[in-house]
Nucleic acid binder design. Structure first.
Lengths: 200, 200
DNA sequence: CGTCTATTTGAATGTACTCAAAAGCGGTGG
DNA sequence: CCACCGCTTTTGAGTACATTCAAATAGACG
């Protein structure tokens, strides 16, 4: 019935959004499907973000270029997450972020008109959408607290614990950028942890 | 007409929320006013946050206790901002944050029922509320990027530029915690900047 | 196989941290 | 008005750890 829709998306629509199978089918009809090759961008700094994009397959990184010209990775996004720049989308302003596929990926997109039409047709979706924003707000607050208070080693271990799949899919130097340290430091940190584990 | 309501709140309700004076008057009638003494808490970790609270006068800090038992200040809040824990409020779960007054303060509160009643009576308020959440989401993403990529000195200067009033109202050791450094480091950092300015 | 990129290793440097102590400051009570 | 107390901020010395720059190794992909 829902071929080629990631099970995580379906379960989220069923439980969090509380949609029936009929409503899900209707909702899905508003999305347009898009394939994105590894290393391609769906958003670049300076552009306006025109879509709410849900990841059906693959993964992305979102980053910005800081004052010193260095890339700073803000987050990764996997199946069922959304990716892009909400600020730019809502306010139709140029984004300051880049969103790049790290694998061959497939996303489900809504432009502003499609989103509005979908929310009209399936009102529960508007609430669902708001909850998603709220939840990413809550998650980010916790992440901020960690960035502020933890040592690099603690950040690394926390990431390993919460999202072990990251280490199966994302190159280490990207993870270093996400953790706010240099790749060399991450390498040494991992070395320290390894030798510590060997001993005990 | 609106005695004892901070002008920033009024102008926000007028412009961002787009309320008429009549609607503002109606909206305000749903709030309950509360006085909070310096050092008092309106939220402690473990409690459920029962109110949406807007600051009418005074300022607050929100912090958590990290694994090592150290306080980590997530943000300060001043007139017109809200304070508390949205996550806890929405999901009726125990909070992990503390919210403490740093001056004698006055807040305008809505419990869940009052908020719902207000949104029914003045529908624009619901949209306004959502926008507030979105905006704090956007701001936090930028803050996260800065925490990740900037040196303590850059963070300090950015804070000084964006919220100079912070330095008039908040003790330095709290600012250090907010910046993610030790008070000693902040003191030395300031010393370096001072002597650099003296020379040039 | 060769090239390009990612990861590791090395050595030197810088800066924030810890612990400890002194100095500054504000408020209270004698 | 002054002395004292608690709290904040500054200063000092030594250490730890991330950074930089450089180079070597390892992997991926054509």
């Amino acid at each position: 019935m829902f071929e080629n829709i990631h099970p995580l998306i379906l379960s989220r629509l069923r439980t969090t959004a509380g949609l029936s199978d009929g409503e899900i089918l209707e909702a899905l009809s508003f999305f347009s499907r898009r394939f994105v090759e590894k290393k391609d961008y769906i958003l670049r700094a300076g552009e306006v973000c025109r879509f709410r994009s849900y990841i059906n397959r693959g993964c992305f990184r979102r980053y910005m270029i800081d004052d010193r010209g260095k890339e700073v990775i803000l987050n990764f996004a996997f199946e069922e997450w959304w990716i892009g720049d909400l600020d730019s989308f809502q306010n139709q302003q140029p984004s300051i972020y880049y969103a790049q596929a790290l694998e061959d990926s497939e996303i489900l997109c809504l432009d502003a008109a499609q989103l509005e039409a979908l929310c009209e047709a399936v009102p529960k979706f508007r609430v669902f959408d708001m909850k998603k924003i709220e939840n990413s707000h809550f998650a980010m607050l916790k992440r901020l607290a960690m960035m502020q208070s933890s040592t690099p080693e603690e950040k690394y271990l926390a990431l390993l614990k919460k999202y072990p799949e990251v280490f199966q899919r994302i190159p280490l130097h990207y993870i270093a950028s996400y953790l706010g340290i240099e790749p060399e430091s991450l390498s040494r940190l991992r070395g320290r942890l390894l030798s510590r584990n060997r001993k005990s």
